[in-house]
Simulated scan of single mutants.
Amino acid sequence: MKHVLITGAGRDTGRLLALAFAASGAHVIATARTAVAAEETVALVRAAGGSAEAVVLDLASPASIAGLELERLDVLVNSGARYLEGDASPADVADTIGGAAIGTALLTERVLPLLRASNGADVVNLVSAAGEPGQHRSSAHPAFYAAKHAQAGYAEILSARLRPEGIRVISLFPPDFVQDGPRESGAPLTARSVVDCVLFAVGQPRDCFIRAFHFEQI
């Protein structure tokens, strides 16, 4: 049974990822900023017959990441990130960049020894089209763009350096998407479709290194 850590698993896309990985037979480590949010996800996973545990983790807090204790990990899904738009305070900007950029790097480095010990590890990054060069279609705050560019840059170099070790680093660059909706041509991208892409990528044979998913914009 693979052990999968999912950040931002307390709601929305992170919660969908947790449910999907558990349904595929994985043990899910559902992390969130609050115990209540993480435990709600775990309860849903267990109600569906899956295996999961709740962990409180604040990606904007280096101390929280440093305190993370795990015995095993096969897949890290960096999905937790604060979306920011409109007017933002300095604290909002720092929290957004700290969580998505610094938090992704610190957490990945923290669990890298466990991933190296795994027989087939993956690091999945839900970046955003806002992290693509020249992209400006999202209404997100510039700080969100900055955070996602940093996340994308970290993932790119990490992919090149870890591939010789057999560790895959997979990044997704979806446009702004909706949680629910018709999954048909012309409709906005849904979270379920993003989740399906993640499971497809990690489900490929180990000779298949999918570095990134880039999505067509509407």
Rank of each mutant, 00 (worst) to 15 (best):
G25V: 10
P188L: 02
S138M: 12
G98T: 10
G98I: 11
A212S: 15
Q151W: 01
D207Q: 13
R82S: 08
V77A: 09
R211G: 12
A32N: 03
P113C: 06
A100C: 07
G8A: 13
A35E: 15
A32F: 07
L44S: 13
V202G: 02
I210M: 13
I6N: 12
Q151F: 02
P62R: 08
I97N: 05
D92H: 12
L19G: 00
A130F: 02
G131E: 04
A91C: 01
L19N: 02
I157Q: 08
L126I: 15
N78A: 10
L76T: 04
D87A: 15
P174D: 11
I97Q: 03
A91V: 10
V169I: 12
E85Q: 14
L106F: 09
S61E: 11
S61R: 00
D95W: 02
D74K: 07
S159M: 08
E39W: 00
L17M: 14
I157G: 01
R15C: 13
G134M: 06
P182S: 13
A38Y: 04
I157F: 04
T7L: 08
Q151D: 08
A48P: 00
A129M: 07
L106M: 13
L76Q: 03
V169Q: 09
V77S: 02
I157R: 09
A187Q: 15
P133W: 02
G186D: 10
V169F: 06
D176Q: 08
G98D: 10
R11E: 14
S118A: 15
V93A: 08
G103D: 00
R168M: 07
V36Y: 02
A129C: 03
I167A: 01
L68D: 05
Q135E: 14
E109T: 13
A88G: 11
Y83L: 13
E69I: 06
L114F: 10
A129N: 01
L106Y: 00
D95V: 05
I102G: 00
L70K: 10
V4L: 09
E53C: 08
E132Y: 01
P90Q: 03
A191H: 05
A43W: 03
I170N: 04
R15G: 02
A160M: 10
H3W: 01
D122Y: 08
I97K: 03
F209N: 13
L70F: 03
